[in-house]
Structure formats: structure tokens, C-alpha cells
Nucleic acid binder design. Structure first.
Lengths: 338, 338
DNA sequence: GGAAAAGATGTTAGCGTTAACAAGTAGACC
DNA sequence: GGTCTACTTGTTAACGCTAACATCTTTTCC
């Protein structure tokens, strides 16, 4: 990297002190207007660019926040990041982006690097494989604010922004019940992450609420991806034909796409033989055949809200820790036979 | 932010100098193994986390690279970013992520912030609206390496990684010609960015190459989004029926989706009345009806390659500036009537 | 056994900036 | 004219770390 112009050089050229230059460039009060103008001009002419690193060192603020996502290509995350970026940028901060690839080790490494880069706060959606929350506790103990989004950990002293998974899952299951289905299966997510547990719970509550027995044979752990959904559905389809489910609640849309493929491969029709619902409203949900009834998750708004909460925590020590749930809605399409 | 443990504190606790601690923590030679161990342990016990900001200040290296993308939700970019992240992370660097939202002012601001945060290099895919390259020149002049990806600017002294837009566009147009189409229209991108100009050029070359006249009425500027494609296609469809095109080459897949909607709305059939091809191989291309024949752009590989080139530039002053083109392929689907 | 080499540790200074205090300058007012 | 106030500018030190050099200790080898 070539030599960069420093405040000192600008000050020397103008025959003033570094402090005067610093004050002028940062638009502080108590600097003569004429001096300010002269400094600004000279700095521009000389190609001066502020050294944020040095500034961060003395101010102990970097105006940078870290983001940790488990999977960037899953459409929820780009949307959420877009929302975050807008809020964070407007507040005058930058984003250090890290990716855990659903790997808890990589997640820990990412968080440690963010801490060493002295970010002012961190937005995390935890990796599937995380079992140990001690890194979160450690970070929170250092008073480095964390806001979880989408995938939450409670009772750790960090805010979380997401949807009410339990309730949303309850709603879409109930929607199926009201449509007249009673043999309803669930392709569940990993029970290690909150969305897996809570969506399963909502599904169970909805059945019990309508006096439908919850059968273990109807619940298969499928994971969050298409292949998992495909495999789990194939397993369900191997049941004796009088015990086949009439409808399936999938933990998310990719899982539902996999399940739909398995159903079609078995020569069954959606929704005539088996109805399917997803969760996310993936960009593809409207395009698959038949189009998928699902829960619309407001990714962009979750991103915005999480970022707003984080900035609030950063700028105000007494900002209360809280869980924020955004509303979801059922998007009716053809996989449940409109 | 709470007080953080410093090297000085660790040194005092152990009764050694700061240098010894620094050397031990950075795993430098010429430190006694026992001392190293003691330091490591004490540091961990005390909860020491390296201050990368201070380190960056003295070393004049941040081990951070900036990424500037115009649109995070467009599926090409998440894929590209994923590739970049893997390479960058493995090389021991972090990413500062910025988003220009296709706005040249935001792009300039982002680049300036990245420079002031003293990133070691920048990966840019320029915004549509950029007319003025002086910020790029300024950055390159400071010896801060830039690698453009997907959307290139040539002759500026920066490497670029992308596909050969001209050739790919030539290929898919020729593919239509070989299928027997001769009335072939083009919904073009903005001519201000390289992909717009070069894809248009490839389209023209392919027609000329087969002795088909290039008609201005068959070329409409549609932009890069669905709505632009829709509007431009509607305009084309308003031609007298004997002058309607039989096939349309769209600048990208979203544009093609818009065009397909316009065609369907007009009561025409794809591909029987009008064939459509796109460019990108968006995640939706296989799911729309009919599925879209398109050019597969290796987003992930472009991301990896661009990141590799940037790291090479950062770590080796004499790394040659070059344009790198990755191969594309035509994905045949039903919109051209297999 | 002693000189040279190698290894371990320490000291000083500086990276570019700003906080905190100090000092100088001009205008206001009696 | 002198004192007070308000504004402008300057000085010093520090942020946490490491490069470069200096010093001390141990090992090696004739």
C-alpha cells in the first residue's frame, strides 16, 4: 500500500496544529469558519483519507457491527441482510460479514475474530450444529451487545428478533385441520435449534387443540434442506397405505420441495392424495407445481428490526433486552387445494 | 464496552515484558517453549482477546477486504459472495460488506468508507448508474488493489473476473438461429454497464454471422429487472403481427420472467408463438412455466476466482493485472421448445 | 576455558488519531 | 484602559500493539 496522507502532513502544509485539522475535518465547533474551509480544501487537494483504524483505537469505537449467518444462499438471509444493511448504513456503521456454513466451530472462530476486530455489536443467526453457548455468554459478559435473529437463544441476556415459530406453526397446522385433514404428519427440523423445537411444538399443540392424537410415526426429523425432506418423506410413504398421512407440515420450504418430489415420485398427487405446507415463503414457493402453501416470514423486516435493536443496544446501555416477534401470515396456494 | 484485557496486563501478571507476551501470542520464534505456554495459559485465563485494531495500526495491514455489491437479493450475488467468503476466510482475511443498491453515490460512499477503514483490497461489482470512474482510479492510484467481478471496467489497471458476455450472448443467439428462428429480438440491459453493451454486441454479431439483418425495432432497452422486461416485451408485442419476433434474447433471467408474463398476458404461447431465452440461470429458471432456456453463469466460481485474484494482488505487488473469463454453458429447457 | 554463535528477553519509539487540558487572541463592557 | 468572557488554537499524552534494535543468557565448539 502506498504512503497515505496523514493529518500531520495536512497540518504542516497549512502551518497549523494537527488538532486544528482534526477538529475541522470532523466538523467540530470552535473552529474558525475560514480555517475549516482552508483545511477541507487542502485535505481534498492532498488526497487525504481519514484513517479509521487510528480513530477507532483512541475512541474505542469502530462503528462496525458483525453479522454471522449460517447460510448465505438460503433466500431468507440475503433478504434479512438487505434490511440490516439499510439500517446499519443509515446509522453510520459498517458491516463485517461472516459465514458459519452451519458449522459451530467456524461460528466460534467468526465471533472471536469479530471481537478482536472490536466490532461494536454482533448480529447472529446461530448455526444448526451449535450445542455450546459459552462463546455467546463470554461475548455478552464483555458488554459487547449481541442480537440474535431468526434462530434464538433465550435467557442469555441478549435480545432476539424473529417470528413466533410455535404460534405460526400452530396456525398453519390448524389451517389444515380446518380444511378437514386429520392425518397430519410433520417433517421436523433439528431439535437443537429453536425453530426446530418450536415449530414441532406448534404442530403438536394445534393437533391437541382439535383433539387429534399426536402420533410419533407421523413425526420425522428431516433437517432444513431439500434432501432431508425428500428422505424423510420417503420414509413416511413407506407406511401401510391406510396409515399414510393426508397432509404434511414441513419445517421449511426447501424441506417441502424435497417432500413434494418424493410424493410425486411415489405416483401420488398433491394435494389430492397428500397436501403439503411449507414455512418461509421461499422465492420458489410460487413457482413449483403445485405452488406451495406456506408461512410468509418477513425476512427483510426481521433484518431491519434486528439491526435497529442492535444499534439501540450499542448506543444506549440501558436499552432493555427483549424478544421481538414479527407477525407472519399464511400464503394460500395450490398444494393444499385452494 | 467493558474494559478489555491488554497485553500489558498479561505481561505485568507474569512479570515479563510486553514484547515477550506479544511474541508468544503470535507464535513467533525465539521464545522459550515454557514461557510461551505460560503466556498462552495466563492470557486465556484472563480472557485476553487480541486487539486487531491496534495491530492493524502498526502493521498497516488490516487483513480485511471490502466487497461492494449492487444488489444482494439477486441470486447471483449470494452465490458469488459464498465463493468469496470461503477463499477470503481461508486466506485469513475478513470481509467488510457494503451494498450500493445500484446507486452510484452510495457506491462512492461505500468505497470511501472502505478506504478509510484501511481494507487491504476491494472486490466490486459496479452499480448500474455509475458514469464516472474517477473513484476507481483514485483507489487504484493509492495502490489499494481492486478486482472487479461480473461487471467490469477495462483499462483502469484493475483485474476483472467474469464471463465473456459477448461470446455467451453470441452463443445463445446462435443457438436460436440453429433452431430455425430468424426473427430474433433482444431485450437489452443498460448500455452503461459492460454486461448490457457486450450482450447486445454478441446478439448482433450472431445475427450478422448468419446473415440476418439486425433491426433496431427488435432491440429494446429493458434494464435488469422483471418490470423492465415486462414493459419492453409489451412494447415489442405492439408491433404489427407480421413483424412480431419469433424469439427473444433477454439480457438476464429476471428480465426474461417479465417478458414471459407479458407474452402470456397477450394470449401467446411460449415457445410455440415466441421462444424466450434468459441469461444467469436464476434459481427460478427451472421452475417457471415453461422452464427457461438460459446461460448458466458460474457465480460461485466467479466469486472464488475474484477473491483469489484479489488476495494475490494484495500479497504480491507484481501480480499481473488481467481479465479472467470463466466458461458458461447453455442450459436447454422448454422455453425454446426442446 | 573462552570466544563465538544462537537463543531469549527487554527497551524505545512510533503507527495516526483524538481527549483533555493549556494558552493565546479578540471582542465586550464598565 | 483593564478585566472578563468567548472563541480559537496549541500541547501533551494516550489508545494497544509491534518493529527494530539492544542486552542478557545459554549453548557450542575448538
Amino acid at each position: 500500500m502506498a504512503e497515505r496522507v496523514t493529518i500531520k502532513q495536512v497540518a504542516n502544509k497549512l502551518g497549523v496544529s494537527m488538532m486544528t485539522v482534526s477538529r475541522a475535518l470532523n466538523n467540530r465547533p470552535n473552529v474558525d469558519e475560514k480555517t475549516k474551509k482552508r483545511v477541507m480544501e487542502t485535505a481534498r487537494e492532498m488526497g487525504y483519507i481519514q484513517n479509521h483504524i487510528a480513530k477507532s483505537l483512541v475512541q474505542k469505537r469502530t462503528f462496525t457491527v458483525g453479522i454471522v449467518v449460517p447460510e448465505i444462499t438460503h433466500s431468507f438471509f440475503p433478504d434479512a441482510i438487505k434490511g440490516m444493511e439499510e439500517v446499519i448504513n443509515l446509522a453510520g456503521y459498517q458491516i463485517i460479514f461472516t459465514h458459519s456454513a452451519e458449522d459451530s466451530k467456524k461460528e466460534v472462530a467468526a465471533i472471536e475474530t469479530l471481537a478482536s476486530k472490536r466490532v461494536d455489536g454482533i448480529l447472529i443467526s446461530m448455526a444448526e450444529s451449535v450445542r455450546d453457548f459459552s462463546i455467546y455468554k463470554q461475548i455478552i459478559n464483555m458488554k459487547l451487545p449481541i442480537v440474535f435473529f431468526d434462530r434464538c437463544v433465550h435467557n442469555l441476556g441478549a435480545s432476539c428478533v424473529g417470528i413466533n415459530d410455535d404460534e405460526s406453526s400452530f396456525n398453519i397446522t390448524e389451517y389444515l385441520v380446518k380444511k378437514g385433514y386429520s392425518k397430519i404428519a410433520h417433517l421436523a427440523g433439528p431439535t437443537t435449534i429453536s425453530i426446530g423445537r418450536e415449530r414441532l411444538n406448534g404442530y403438536k399443540r394445534a393437533l391437541l387443540n382439535s383433539n387429534i392424537e399426536v402420533k410419533d410415526e407421523y413425526i420425522k426429523i428431516a433437517g432444513l434442506h431439500e434432501t432431508g425432506g425428500y428422505e424423510a418423506m420417503k420414509e413416511l410413504l413407506s407406511s401401510p397405505s391406510d396409515q399414510l398421512p393426508e397432509a404434511v407440515v414441513c419445517v421449511n420450504d426447501p424441506c417441502a420441495f424435497g417432500a413434494m418430489n418424493a410424493i410425486k415420485e411415489a405416483g401420488l398427487k398433491i394435494p389430492e392424495d397428500i397436501a403439503v405446507v411449507g414455512f418461509t415463503d421461499d422465492i420458489r414457493a410460487n413457482l413449483v407445481t403445485p405452488s406451495l402453501t406456506t408461512i410468509k416470514q418477513p425476512a427483510y423486516e426481521i433484518g431491519r428490526k434486528a439491526a435497529e435493536k442492535l444499534i439501540a443496544h450499542i448506543e444506549n446501555d440501558s436499552e432493555p433486552v427483549e424478544d421481538i416477534y414479527l407477525a407472519t401470515e399464511i400464503v394460500e396456494r395450490k398444494s393444499t387445494g385452494i
